[in-house]
Computed example of a mutant assay.
Amino acid sequence: MTQAITIEIKRLHHGANLPLPAYATEGAAGMDVVSAEDVTLAPGGRHAVATGFALAIPDGYEIQVRPRSGLALKHGISLPNTPGTIDSDYRGELKIIMINLGDAPFVIQRGDRIAQLVAAPVQLARFAEVETLSDTARGEGGFGSTGVKAAAS
């Protein structure tokens, strides 16, 4: 079983009586988070949806904000910066940037599940500037250079 970290959460006044982020099932990787406001997203529209809480994420971790697959498939609702990152030093209200990629207005009501939150460790890195890079089979090929079809087995 995976060991849980503790994330401090502060409920804001407009988050009263809403459920805190929670796992829907025992095997879920993401915690469902709900809207703290009523919003209608027009087709092509975006909005930073309030959640009614702020977090204190432990050093060495981030919260990744991910779309809900059902909203994406059924309504074309997604997050334009997925996965979004909430840094451990941010203490403001968590807002979920949502976009309507569908062809009809989408109504979000206070209490609706709008996204998933995944706690993840952060691996820091530093860059070492060099004159040349090591060779690989792929080399500088990118943006479709490996093709579309899977290789035959």
Rank of each mutant, 00 (worst) to 15 (best):
I86V: 15
V33S: 07
A125Y: 10
I86M: 10
T85A: 11
Y61M: 12
A125V: 13
A36W: 10
I99S: 03
G27Q: 06
P105D: 14
A120S: 14
A28T: 11
L55S: 02
P67I: 02
I96D: 01
G30N: 02
E62M: 07
F53L: 14
L94D: 01
M98G: 04
V122Y: 05
R68P: 03
E26C: 06
Q116D: 00
D112P: 07
E93H: 07
G70I: 04
G84V: 00
D89E: 12
T25E: 06
D32Y: 12
K74E: 13
I108P: 08
P58L: 08
L101F: 13
G70K: 10
P80C: 09
G92H: 05
P105H: 12
V49I: 15
G30E: 02
A104W: 02
T25P: 00
P80S: 06
R110G: 04
G45F: 08
S35K: 05
V49F: 14
P58I: 06
F53D: 03
T51S: 13
P67T: 00
A48K: 14
G27N: 11
V34E: 08
D89M: 01
I96R: 03
Q123F: 06
G84K: 04
G60T: 10
S88W: 12
A36C: 10
A42G: 03
A28S: 15
Q123D: 11
H75Y: 15
A24C: 04
S69Q: 05
G102N: 07
A28G: 09
Q109A: 14
D87N: 10
D89T: 02
I114A: 11
G92D: 05
F106T: 01
V107Q: 15
Y23V: 09
F106R: 03
A50R: 15
N81E: 08
D89S: 05
L73Q: 08
R91I: 00
L41S: 07
A125R: 08
Q116V: 01
P80E: 10
A119H: 01
A72T: 04
A56C: 03
D87M: 02
T85M: 06
M31E: 12
A104N: 12
F53G: 06
L79A: 06
A28M: 09
D32P: 03
Y23S: 02
S78T: 15
E93M: 07
Y61G: 01
D103R: 08
E62A: 13
V39R: 13
H75G: 04
E62N: 13
G60W: 09
S88Q: 11
V49P: 07
A48P: 09
G44F: 12
Y61W: 15
G102T: 08
G60F: 10
T25C: 03
A36T: 01
P43S: 11
G102Q: 07
I96K: 03
L124R: 14
Y90C: 02
S35Y: 07
I97A: 11
P67R: 06
G84T: 01
G52H: 11
L94I: 10
G92A: 03
D103C: 03
A120L: 08
I57C: 04
A120E: 11
H75E: 09
R46L: 14
P67W: 10
Y23G: 02
S69L: 07
A50Y: 08
E62P: 01
I99H: 05
E26K: 12
I114E: 04
P83W: 09
T82Q: 13
E26W: 05
D38I: 05
A48N: 13
S88T: 03
L73G: 00
